[in-house]
Write a protein that binds this DNA or RNA. Structure first.
Length: 850
RNA sequence: GGGCCCGUAGCUCAGUUGGUUAGAGCGCCUGCUUGACACGCAGGAGGUCACAGAUUCGAGUUCUGUCGGGCCCACCA
């Protein structure tokens, strides 16, 4: 049986993806009390399909998961998707708009049906993609944030927090998105720097005909809702104004002058207008000074009746009208260009309107304190570790979390109102008011912030609030892998809610990876049109190659620039593996050997002992690297072991004296080593190596093994000899195929045939001890020795410099006194090696000269 | 205003506890259609590790500052 000449991953990848699922090898049994590795997927939003960021995420996860599984841990990766409230609702609303429909026309019930229908489509697409990526999750445990079990967990968590007083309802200033028609949390706003103006407006002081207080504002339209002006109590300019009022222009309303520290005497005139209904600071001042709240902008961002003549205008049109009128009345002192940042809705980029409204909140301070403590105690570890700073800073400055959303897609808040204004919060739908017994109840129409349910994900997916075998076996989860962009949105909420609900941090380690960027380092986005579709790329290069490309570029939380070159290099590697296998199969067929995985092998020759030693060393590095989440280092080690050691040297040597047990053993072990990163090609080749009943995915991951120092030394000498001959030949522009005679002086054991074959030489060996182990002299045509001489001279010079450097160090008394023994010895050894090499070169030079 | 990250070969980036000659991939140059592989083989050129100080016997690696780039947080009217 021979391997196909062309490496076509598309032909076998889907097959193995499906086989893994069908064979059920990723299904896990709960085993409470036993060692385990568990991880829950960051559930993708059901808004469409997966992007490269997901693929990076899933690749990193899958490597960790496959590695743990192969190491024999009871390994669980829970898959699933997120209903993604506002995001999904927007997608469906956009689809409706294309057909000229709105959700209001459909009504809540019908709209929800439409979203569920879309959820099915998106969910199917996402799971299809995930399977194609080879994600080795346990599909029997798949969850959706709005499925029955998770909805029960949501209610349980809500009720517990409410009963504890950690959830409250009240009227506060929130970020309102006039387009999405809902409140959003602070995190869901993005601040953008814009060039605006500072309008300076005169407010006449009552009873003092020529006196004005000048206020400066970036939002003149809000003055219509002013109910005071504030000055700093320490500001000498205004101490006489106790009890004074000013006349609010345009509205003709008298409003008091109040004294509040919030007014900064240094800023402008030191007088600030106070609009309690439309500014968070002013809201607080309004409460402090018991000012009236006049709402002049409504939920549609239009002016209300309270705005008098401006009622009905859009907020920005009102701004123009107000400014024009003020100017007309001579009350506009000046307009000053002013750089400010405006809060926009993260989803739709509409400028957010701060509005006082009645919402549900989570009191976050106590939850945050617990989360900080867990991290401080080392129960949650960040990778990379610096994230602890960002974490702490955010947690220490946390503000209460607005969790109610005026949306239709999501978990309805489990609160019921009766006619008497009582609130009943209950796990199950109550039939009567818990306060007055009224049976006329209606449920809160608001839904919960989508992050509330995803905040419960690590345990709600395992059956919580029940103490299920899964929960007892796999909680707390071992690892969380996700992008740093959702640290606050998600990781922080999971930590807070997890600790609150279960008493334990929901994960031990948080690995935060970077972003996948385009070849120019730009963020990928639909609007820029530089997004890559994972499936397209996978079909083009093979999933293994794309995985390898992602991993080899993703070092410790850094962003990765995803270039075609990187993909091509990764594909070349996959092809190399394929071709190496093809060579083995070809030779086996010639030799009449059936492909098989040897039960054992007995390395005797130098190359066999050497490659096993190298494999053992590579396995050690890879194990350590994966354990420490340095996946790029693992990939790099695999790459160089397989390509440089296995292909370039070992296979070449094996061409001289082929026997099968060692090479097949090493090849098969190399496949296992590669499997977590490149699952498909390794499975394909593993299966072709003989009658296997099981998948490579559940074979044992190679352990570190003993290093054969003698073999490595001997092989290194062989490599040096071959290398020096090749260099020599290339320097002299000689035909690589031409056979030359050469004199090799050495007392070391030498694999003569190998050197002669790899360097195209006919050797005359002289058994004599020389520095640096050997000297090799090619019998070259006279005319060609000039280039060689030049190179040797250059090399000698370099070595002399290095040796001088070493000597300076080694004669430095301070160094000798302080340097550790090990470093000192290493240095001496190296110095001796340089010296030997130098002498070898000098000898060669002599011979060239003579 | 606070915090974080980055600045190493033409490009994209590695470089865990400080150790003598700083690496990879791609690109480039030279030679090879060698019976696994041109997605290949062999050889080569290319770096004052942003800059300035400090600590040290020794700094790409630690500290301080400067410059340049990116990101995050923040109730700067």
């Amino acid at each position: 049986m021979q391997l196909e000449k062309i490496y076509e991953p598309q032909r076998f990848e889907p097959h193995w993806a499906q086989w893994w699922i069908d064979s059920g090898i990723f299904k896990v049994e709960p085993r409470p009390g036993e060692k385990y590795f568990s991880l829950v997927i960051p559930p993708p939003n059901v808004t469409g399909s997966l992007h490269m960021g997901h693929m990076l995420d899933h690749t990193l996860i899958d490597i960790a998961v496959r590695w743990h599984r192969m190491r024999g841990d009871n390994t669980l990766w829970v898959p699933g998707t997120d209903h993604a409230g506002i995001a999904t609702q927007m997608v469906v609303e956009r689809q409706l708009a294309e057909k000229g429909e709105t959700r209001l026309q459909l009504g809540r019930e019908e709209f929800e049906k439409r979203v569920w229908a879309w959820k099915d489509i998106s969910h199917a697409r996402i799971t299809e993609q995930m399977k194609r990526l080879g994600s080795s999750c346990d599909w029997s445990r798949e969850r959706f944030t709005m499925d029955e079990g998770l909805s029960r967990a949501v209610r349980e968590a809500f009720v517990r927090l409410y009963e504890k007083g950690s959830i409250y309802r009240g009227e506060y200033m929130v970020n309102w998105c006039p387009r999405c028609q809902t409140a959003i949390s602070d995190l869901e706003t993005a601040h953008e720097d814009v060039q605006g103006n500072l309008w300076h407006i005169k407010y006449p002081v009552n009873g003092q005909p020529d006196r004005f207080l000048t206020v400066a504002t970036t939002r003149p339209e809000t003055m219509l809702g002013d109910t005071a002006v504030a000055v700093n109590p320490k500001d000498a300019r205004y101490t006489d104004l106790h009890g004074a009022t000013v006349r609010l222009p345009l509205m003709g309303r008298d409003i008091p002058v109040i004294f509040d520290d919030l007014a900064d005497p240094e800023f402008g005139t030191g007088v600030v207008k106070v609009t309690p209904s439309h500014d968070p600071n002013d809201f607080d001042m309004g409460k402090r000074h018991k000012l009236p709240f006049i709402k002049v902008i409504d939920e549609q961002a239009k002016m209300t009746q309270a705005a008098g003549p401006y009622a009905g205008l859009d907020r920005f049109d009102a701004r123009k009208a107000v400014v024009a009128e003020l100017e007309k009345q001579g009350l506009l002192v000046k307009i000053e260009p002013y750089a400010l940042s405006v809060a926009k809705c993260d989803r739709c980029r509409t400028i957010v309107e701060p509005l006082a409204s009645t919402q549900w909140f989570v009191k976050t301070k106590p939850l945050a304190d617990a989360a900080i403590a867990k991290v401080e105690a080392g129960e949650i570890e960040f990778i990379p570790a610096n994230w602890i700073n960002t974490w702490n800073q955010w947690m220490h400055n946390i503000r209460d979390w607005c969790i109610s959303r005026q949306l239709w897609w999501g978990h309805r808040i489990p609160a019921w109102y009766c006619d008497n204004g009582h609130i009943t919060v209950h796990r199950d739908d109550p039939s009567k008011c818990s306060t007055c017994g009224s049976d006329n109840l209606h449920q809160e129409t608001d839904v919960l912030d989508t992050w509330f349910s995803s905040g419960l994900w690590p345990f709600s997916t395992l059956g919580w609030p029940d103490q299920t075998p899964d929960f007892k076996s796999f909680y707390p989860t071992t690892l969380m892998v996700t992008g740093f962009d959702i640290l606050f949105f998600w990781v922080a909420r999971m930590a807070m809610l997890g600790i609150e609900m279960t008493g334990e941090a929901p994960f031990r380690q948080v690995h935060l990876h970077g972003l996948v960027r385009d070849p120019h380092g730009q963020k990928m986005s639909k609007t820029k049109g530089n997004v890559m579709d994972p499936l397209t790329i996978n079909d083009q290069f093979g999933t293994d190659a794309v995985r390898f490309a992602l991993v080899s570029g993703a070092a410790s939380g850094m962003d990765i620039s995803f270039t075609t070159e990187r993909l091509e290099a990764a594909r070349a590697f996959a092809t190399k593996i394929w071709n190496a296998a093809r060579f083995l199969f070809m030779r086996m067929e010639e030799a009449g050997v059936e492909p098989h995985i040897p039960a054992s092998c007995n390395p005797e020759t130098i190359e066999d002992r050497w490659i096993i030693s190298r494999l053992n060393s590579a396995a050690a590095t890879v194990n350590k690297a994966i354990e420490q989440h340095r996946y790029h280092e693992a990939a790099d080690t695999m790459y160089h072991f397989f390509w440089d050691d296995f292909c370039d040297w070992y296979i070449e040597l094996k061409k001289l004296r082929a026997d099968w047990d060692v090479i097949l053993t090493v090849f098969e072990k190399a496949l296992r080593l590669l499997h977590p990163v490149m699952p498909f090609i390794t499975e394909e080749l593993y299966q072709r190596m003989g009658p296997n009943t099981k998948s490579i995915a559940i074979s044992a991951f190679p352990d570190a093994g003993p290093i054969d120092a003698a073999a490595e030394r001997e092989m290194s000498l062989l490599q040096q000899i071959v290398l020096s001959a090749r260099q020599n030949r290339a320097d002299n522009k000689l035909d690589p195929k031409a056979q030359f005679k050469a004199k090799l002086v050495t007392s070391e054991p030498i694999y003569r045939a190998a050197i002669e074959k790899l360097a195209n030489l006919t050797l005359e060996i002289q058994n004599e001890t020389v520095p640096a182990g050997f000297t090799l002299t090619l019998e070259l045509p006279e005319a060609n020795s000039a280039a060689l001489k030049q190179r040797l001279e250059k090399e000698a010079l370099q070595l002399e410099k290095t040796i001088a450097n070493s000597d300076r160090q080694l004669s430095n008394e301070a160094f000798l006194a302080k340097a550790p023994e090990k470093v000192l010895n290493e240095m001496k050894e190296k110095r001796a090696a340089y010296q030997a090499q130098l002498e070898k070169i000098r000898k060669q030079l002599q011979e060239v000269n003579s």
